[in-house]
Computed example of a mutant assay.
Amino acid sequence: MARLQEKQNPAKSNRKRARKGFHLDMTPMVDLASLLLTFFILTTTFARLQTMEINMPTAQGPNTPIPGKNALNIVLDEADKVYYFFGYPGDDPEVKQTDFSATGIRQVLLAERVKRNPDIVVLVKATESSRFKNLVDALDELKITGTRKYAMVELREEDKQLLATR
C-alpha cells in the first residue's frame, strides 16, 4: 500500500510546509504478476509434433499380388536421387531418374498415367545408402499428391540389378 510520510519540524512550522514524500509498496503487484505468469505458463499449449499415421500390415496378413500395370516403383538412392519405373523388373521397364523438387517426383505422381488408373499402387523402396530424410520426403510427396494406395517394400535383388543396368 502507499504510505505518506510526513516530516514535521516544530521549529519551522511557520515557514512553508515541508514536502511530503511517499513510498509505494510493490509487493502486491509483484505477487499479482507472478500469479498471472504462472497461470499463463501452465495453461499454454506448446507446439505439438506433427505425425503421420501409417498402417502397417501384419506378417501373417494376406499377400495380395499387384498386376504390373498397377505398380509404380519409387526407389530412393544416395545423394537424394529418386528412380521410378512402372511395372516389375521382370517386365524390363524403363527406369527414369528424378529428384524431390516440385518438378520431380511430384509431377510423376500427378501425371495422367497415374491419375487415370484408380488401382495404381506406389511401391516405395529404399536402398541401403539412402537416408531416412529421403523416405520422409517421399511420404510427404505421396500425401501432397493425394496418393491413397502406397506401400513401403524391401528392395529385392531384381530391383538392384535393374538399377545397376540403368
Rank of each mutant, 00 (worst) to 15 (best):
P65F: 13
N9A: 03
A102K: 15
A2T: 14
R106T: 15
L135H: 06
A102G: 14
T51F: 03
K160I: 05
V136G: 04
T165Y: 00
V95G: 08
T98P: 10
M152D: 01
M152H: 07
V122T: 11
A2M: 07
K81S: 08
V121L: 12
K16E: 08
A126P: 00
T44Y: 07
L4G: 05
P65A: 13
F40V: 10
P89C: 02
F40P: 02
P57M: 08
P65C: 04
L110V: 01
E158Y: 00
I66H: 09
A47D: 06
M29D: 06
Y88K: 15
V30M: 13
F86G: 04
T44W: 05
A59R: 09
L72R: 03
V30R: 12
E6Q: 14
L32V: 07
E53H: 07
L42M: 08
A79F: 06
G90A: 11
R15H: 02
N117R: 10
L72Y: 08
G104D: 13
K12N: 05
A79S: 09
F39Q: 05
A79K: 12
A164C: 01
G61N: 09
L24Q: 05
Q161Y: 09
T64P: 00
K69E: 15
G104R: 13
L24M: 08
M56F: 03
E6A: 14
R15V: 02
D137G: 00
K20Y: 00
K149S: 15
F85E: 04
K125D: 04
V82Y: 05
F22P: 00
D25F: 00
D77W: 10
L72C: 10
T51P: 01
L139Y: 07
P93M: 08
Q50G: 00
T51H: 07
F132K: 11
L72K: 07
Q107V: 11
A47I: 03
F100K: 10
V108H: 03
N9I: 13
T43L: 03
Y88M: 07
L76W: 08
L109S: 09
D31L: 13
L110N: 15
V95L: 05
A79M: 06
E128F: 05
P93A: 07
Y150N: 15
M152L: 15
D140V: 03
P67G: 13
P57F: 04
T58E: 05
A47Q: 12
L135D: 03
F22I: 07
P28A: 03
P118E: 01
A18I: 02
N134A: 14
I66G: 06
L36G: 06
R131W: 01
D92Q: 11
